[in-house]
Design a binder for these strands. Structure first.
Length: 860
RNA sequence: GGGAAUGUAGCUCAGUGGGGGAGCGUUUGCCUUACAAGCAAGAGGUCGCAGGUUCAAUCCCUGCCAUUCCCACCA
């Protein structure tokens, strides 16, 4: 082994070896575990948020594989309709072209090249993170098989009446040029103005309305007031004259109108506001569309062709000069923006395809309520249910080129709709060949909703589908619970008659160290490729795993990764030590021969137990902490140091080598899910076969040993080091140490040698009486440990040290005593607490006596 | 308006009904033959504020303050 671990050499090598040996493919086992990747969008390379997602899945997958299950992690990518189309349009624009210029066919050709390129780049990134997914089963939402599934689902839902087409108020993104679903709208607070405009009443007088969008007044077809509003009782039923236009519109009553807002009078524009649309329907108002799909005025007149902002300015100016403008107030309100390009959404009436959600939502709600799908952390269940119980119909058509075409053909002769899984050549009603396909495509989330079964071969009843559906776990972020998780549950229940997964682990969102979202414009993103390059994939994995608590955010400081590179190095060097001292030794039967052996073997048992149970409860950060603390804090800091003593003892040498090897071996297994590369690399130096498919360790009953006072042993070591530090002695200073009192250490263990090794003492011996000029290192109820000083002895330091120990012990004693003298405590506290409090009190009492005696002797 | 989360060391974050933790940073001393990417010792915290429940609260409950997020509405 080299002196330093080099991630670069090791990572690629092992990934290739695992792949070549086919170890990522399911191997027959004891039960199965399947998981499908949330397919990354092919819009860009992956960021560190994806890395967290990938890493958690790989940790679980590797754990389950080592548990002996037939394990499948299915990878793939999402074509990401709108997002990808935007990227390509942007690219074209940089070349001075538009998509209309090059045409749909050429555009799709470019899109497929784009998809190819980014799928490869994403795959390379996922591989570099060590993801043990089965690339032979890689899928793409635009694959032939998945497209077939999409069509089958569409046709089936259409035939059941759960997909329909109709004219409704929809969210239009003028920049993307498509309709969006409600979930694709982001509401942002915009600072704007509230304009008060006076509308003359034909029958005499006038009424003032307040609006944030004066440009939509061109489409006004009524004014509404609340029927309880006494200000307007005389005006209801009369007619207003629309300023600048001259249209005569009725004044109607509707209790939607809030009397307290503005003037209590509301202009109604049914074509460009969702609420106005509803009011318009109720009152049979005329719908006059005045804004087109490019967000320009299409209403004939002086404003025609202007964009929304210019039209607003022009209309306000004209209103003012004509004397209709009453006042303008500053106003802040939330405005819908496109989640992909952030353009302000234009509500419009349009003919679109929808999925009727209510009947589909019902079983999806029950599945979660019945615990067939469980969220972790649990609180996300409520978020899911709230949304699902008030779900709106899902607008699934998109005016894009990059996506699954809607499988509907219109007959130009009879007008019949042919809805078919395969491309028809004639109208199914009249037989006319004069038909054309709907030009629109489906929402990208339509195909992702089928992901858990379409990737396994559905609609064909493949072996994979039978074996691996439902999957066991979904790992994803909370930001796509509505977009994706909810819809997968819906579709799974509808088409597979079973939930798509039993457990959903919702991980955190990765933010920067100041808690801001990572974004390109802020330049605060962390590129996982750079992290891997700099610190190694294992360090990145371990860092993220240690942070993966069941919280909501991770504020990630990129310095964090450095710590875990240091941890890699620590593992490497500890292994190096074992190699130097136990190379070429066959691991047979380690025994708990000494106190140190028994302690580390017990600790190992404990960490196996805790880490395993942390895995079972989705506490990956706790699992990671267990092995980190054990390996560094227990194995390296204590056992390896003590093993140096045992290795020099001919009686103990062989077994010590066995224990070192054994603990290293089990530790590598426990590390593997988190740090697969370095653990496999080290494994290969010592052991046969692949670690990745080695069985996960169980608690070893032979190594359950009783407590031998190791804590006090550690206290002694720390106490002696402390004395040296207090006296400004270098750690290398050889000191003589004596132990006064009953020697309760196990006779089979070289405890004195451990101590002298750990603190660099010349000698550790048991004596009956405390020597003069000795500093107190540690005291417990049965013994005291002193460092014999001679010329370095410092009377005042020793007094101060003793006093501080006495103060601390006294405080503790009083606390325990007052607790025990409290009748309520003795009556009500559980017995074991009372017993341990009593024991603690007695022990500290004895300790105090010893401390007092030492202090008295010193003063004499 | 409805809902949720968070508030613990300088920073990033764990954690628990019964003596407050880690990593990084910082101070001090060490090349102690696995590791200076290391070892050791230390400093540093009314566990957001105020009540309540309890024998016992950093932890459970209520209210408040602060930060953040989601949903709905916003003429």
């Amino acid at each position: 082994m080299d002196k330093f671990y080099s991630p670069k050499d090791s990572e690629k090598k092992w990934y290739d070896k695992w792949q070549a040996a086919g170890l990522f493919s399911p191997q027959p086992g004891n039960g199965k575990f399947s998981i499908v990747i949330p397919p990354p969008n092919i819009t860009n390379v992956l960021h560190v948020g994806h890395a967290l997602n990938i890493i958690i899945q790989d940790i679980v997958t590797r754990y389950e594989r080592m548990r002996g299950k037939e394990t499948l992690w299915l990878p793939g990518e999402d074509h990401a309709g709108i997002a990808t189309q935007n990227m390509i349009v942007k690219k074209l624009s940089a070349e001075g072209k538009t998509k209309e210029e090059i045409g749909q066919e050429k555009f799709l050709e470019i899109a497929w090249q784009w998809a190819q390129e980014y799928r490869t780049r994403i795959k390379t990134q996922v591989e570099s993170m060590g993801a043990s997914c089965d690339w032979s089963r890689e899928r793409f939402t635009f694959d032939e098989g998945l497209s077939k599934a999409v069509r089958k689902v569409f046709v089936s839902l259409y035939r059941k009446g759960l997909i329909y087409r109709g004219k409704y108020m929809i969210n239009w993104c003028p920049s993307c040029g498509t309709v969006l679903s409600n979930e694709e709208i982001e509401y942002l607070d915009d600072r704007s103005k509230l304009y008060y405009v006076r509308y003359p009443i034909q029958e005499g007088g006038s009424i003032v309305i307040a609006t944030t969008r004066p440009e939509t007044m061109l489409g006004d077809t009524a004014i509404a007031v609340n029927d309880k509003d006494e200000r307007y009782t005389g005006i209801v039923g009369k007619h207003a004259i629309l300023p600048l236009v001259g249209r005569v519109i009725p004044v109607i009553i509707d209790d939607y109108v809030d009397m307290k807002f503005g003037t209590g009078a509301l202009k109604i524009t049914p074509a460009h506001d969702p609420n106005d649309f509803e009011i318009g329907k109720k009152h049979n108002l005329e719908v006059i569309s005045v804004i087109n799909e490019k967000a320009r005025i299409k209403f004939d007149g002086p404003y025609k062709g202007m964009d929304r902002e210019s039209a607003r300015k022009a209309i306000v100016t004209d209103l003012e000069s004509a004397g209709y403008l009453v006042k303008i107030e500053d106003y802040q309100h939330s405005v819908g923006h496109c989640y992909r390009c952030h353009t302000v959404i234009e509500p419009m009436i349009s003919d679109q395809w929808f999925v009727k959600m209510e009947p589909l939502a019902k079983p999806a709600i029950e599945a979660v309520k019945d615990g067939k799908v469980r969220f972790h952390p649990e609180r996300w269940e409520k978020v899911y249910l709230n949304w699902m119980e008030d779900v709106h119909d899902w607008c699934i058509s998109r005016q894009l080129w990059w996506g699954h075409r809607i499988p509907v053909w219109y007959c130009n002769d009879c007008g019949h709709l042919t809805v078919s899984e395969t491309d028809p050549d004639r109208c199914e009603a009249c037989g006319s060949q004069n038909i054309h396909q709907d030009p629109d495509v489906l929402d990208t989330w339509f195909s992702s909703a089928l992901w858990p079964f379409s990737t396994l071969g559905w609609p064909t009843q493949t072996e994979d589908l039978k074996k691996f559906y439902p999957t066991d776990l979904l790992v994803t972020g909370f930001d796509i619970i509505f977009f994706w998780v909810a819809r997968m549950i819906v579709m799974g229940l509808e088409f597979m008659d079973d939930v798509p997964f039993h457990d959903v682990y919702i991980h955190q969102l990765v933010r920067d160290k100041l808690g801001r979202k990572m974004s390109k414009s802020l330049g605060n993103g962390i590129d996982p490729s750079e992290v891997i390059e700099k610190y190694g994939a294992d360090a990145m994995r371990m860092a993220l795993a240690m942070l993966a608590s069941q919280g909501r955010d991770i504020n990630l400081d990129d310095r964090t990764f450095e710590s875990y590179m240091h941890f890699s190095n620590k593992i490497w060097n500890a292994s190096h030590f074992v190699e130097m001292n136990a190379d070429k030794i066959e691991l047979k039967n380690p025994q708990g021969m000494t106190m140190a052996d028994r302690w580390i073997l017990s600790k190992l048992n404990l960490v196996i137990e805790k880490e395993t149970s942390a895995f079972e409860s989705y506490d990956y950060n706790i699992a990671a902490h267990e092995i980190y603390d054990f390996f560094w804090g227990d194995f390296c800091d204590w056992y390896i140091e003590m093993s140096k003593v045992q290795l020099e003892d001919s009686q103990l040498r062989e077994n010590t080598q066995q224990v070192l090897l054994y603990v290293l071996k089990e530790s590598l297994k426990l590390l593997h899910p988190f740090m697969p590369f370095i653990s496999e690399e080290i494994w290969s130096y010592f052991f046969e076969g692949f670690l990745i498919v080695t069985r996960w360790p169980d608690v070893n009953d032979e190594f359950k040993f009783k407590d031998e006072g190791f804590d006090f042993f550690m206290e002694i070591v720390k106490g002696i080091r402390n004395v040296k530090a207090d006296l400004d002695l270098p750690p290398s200073a050889k000191v003589r140490t004596v132990i006064v009192g009953k020697n309760k250490w196990p006779k089979d263990s070289p405890v004195e040698l451990y101590i002298s090794k750990l603190v660099n003492a010349s000698k550790v011996e048991n004596v009956r009486i405390k020597p003069k000029r000795a500093m107190t290192a540690a005291v417990n109820s049965s013994s005291e440990v002193f460092v014999v000083m001679d010329e370095h002895f410092d009377f005042n330091t020793e007094i101060a040290r003793l006093n501080s120990k006495i103060v601390k012990a006294t405080e503790e004693f009083r606390k325990l005593e007052s607790r025990l003298s409290n009748d309520e405590f003795v009556k009500k506290a559980p017995e074991e607490i009372i017993e341990s409090t009593k024991a603690d009190k007695e022990a500290i009492e004895k300790t105090l006596k010893r401390l007092d005696k030492t202090l008295r002797n010193l003063r004499e």
